[in-house]
Amino acid sequence: MMDISVSQSAIAEWMQAYIGDFLNVDAQQVDVQTDFERFGLDSAIVVSLVSELEEWLELELSPSLLFEYPTIDAMSQHLYGRKLPVSSAQPVQP
């Protein structure tokens, strides 16, 4: 279950680590404003990345989302935005 306090930067860092692992480089070297296309990801990696994000964030995601939001910045902003209404809808504890 996702921690409701997950931040946009946590999502971005997760994606940097995932892509860094694929490219065999340090996560910090994965630029958040570079188009995914430039990383040379193959279709299997794109599908795995989206599937793991789905599992972690408990969201149903289109496999083509990376083409609509083509950078880590854009994706993390979009995903954070989709989680936000759910998180904000949590009942306030008395």
């Binding site: 279709s43 299997a44 794109v46 599908v47 989206v50 599937s51 289109s62 496999p63 083509s64 083409f67």
Partner: peptide, 10 residues
């Protein structure tokens, strides 16, 4: 279906 969608997009 996921792999195909991504393959066509790419």
């Amino acid at each position: 279906l996921k792999l195909s969608a991504v393959g066509f997009r790419m």
